[in-house]
Design a protein around this nucleic acid. Sequence first.
DNA 1: TAATAATTTTTATAGACTAAAATTATTTAT
DNA 2: ATAAATAATTTTAGTCTATAAAAATTATTA
Lengths: 222, 222
Amino acid sequence: MAGQAQAGAGQPSPEKKATPGLRERQKEDRRSRIVDAARQLFASSGLEDITIEAIAEIAGVSSVTVHNYYGTKSGVLLALVAQSDRQLIETLERELAGKANNLVDLLEAFLDIICQHTLTHLDKAIWRQVIASSVNDTDPRFGKVYTALDERLAYVLITEIKVLQAAGHVNPAVKPGDLGKALFNLQNMRFIEFIATDTVSKDSVVEALKRDTTALLAAMQA
Amino acid sequence: MAGQAQAGAGQPSPEKKATPGLRERQKEDRRSRIVDAARQLFASSGLEDITIEAIAEIAGVSSVTVHNYYGTKSGVLLALVAQSDRQLIETLERELAGKANNLVDLLEAFLDIICQHTLTHLDKAIWRQVIASSVNDTDPRFGKVYTALDERLAYVLITEIKVLQAAGHVNPAVKPGDLGKALFNLQNMRFIEFIATDTVSKDSVVEALKRDTTALLAAMQA
DNA sequence: TAATAATTTTTATAGACTAAAATTATTTAT
DNA sequence: ATAAATAATTTTAGTCTATAAAAATTATTA
């Protein structure tokens, strides 16, 4: 196109990260249109009515394109979760910030916030499918994205553990990274328990986690 | 029927659990034929070629019947896992029996045996689908069966913890049930990590679990 | 503007799952 | 022993996810 060629030649653009080209922009546009369509469908009717076909129609692409972009339906849902997670991390950092003075309370607050966020922003059905795919999905992209989310959440926990350790509430010989990952795993099993069944309440899993941490942290004491 | 009525009246049978009736026997027969077919298919070609259609054909029933009996394909696979688990529990009890003298070693051995058993008897692909369904499956039967399996495994661990506690290696104030469930969960996340990716080795997750337990159990020490 | 390359759509197919109608076999009552 | 009542399976038909290959578009580049 004349216009484009002129602009490219006329400006002294570093040619590196200038205008990403029409194709790149179209891709980015389709990506977001697909996720937007999924969110829109979820908001109006819930997971049952989110079909790839419906997403494709709203997004103005073919169903095959949805698969090409996100691999699987779970891939699209994971994109929803990923967006909501940015907000979750902010909430976690704000709400936790040095408030607890021991590991049991810290982890309790951590799980509580995550469950609450799940109920408020997405819902259990979506998480079920996403977590199931985190184990099962053959598409390598899925695992990458999901692992990154988990690591970011674990990092928030590790940061708070460092604070506790600095305040002398945790054995200074223990590596905060190791402890944080272990506690995150512990908490994550209870979160999975929470989302796996519609009738399991937030309070019940938080209580269960408290029993976990209490027992573990006391196990070695004389 | 005259024959049945005669037998029932003639014999002093308690009428309680006599002959289960033809229909019951047929059901039991179909159930086992279906699992046998699945095992047969798995042995010859692996998970990819286990289709409901193929199972149904070998078992001599329709594909709809397979669904009626086991709910989902994962339900059939879970039946395979359940059978193999009986053997696993025997192995665990035999191999663990009072050998470890601390929690870290106990849990390490526990996970090691489970991973080894998985590789030897079934395979990761089957476990992936089963664990995914343990989160996702809508059929209530699945959850029931799966939970029962987990509880039986956790019970083995709890039993060993009681031994350690009796020997004075674990804080006697801690409830073995609570501690056992917490440790089981911890171990279970690493097992899931193990099966989720074909390339993750047994040794690497056992090492990771060791870091988990070491960090947790030391966290509260001065 | 024509040639080339990238990307999407079309088309076709396999497999899991579900619902309802039709069929077959077992029980039960006569 | 036979016929009616009952229970179960099979057939049929349809939806949805997912993948592959061919065909049609559309952007880029020369």
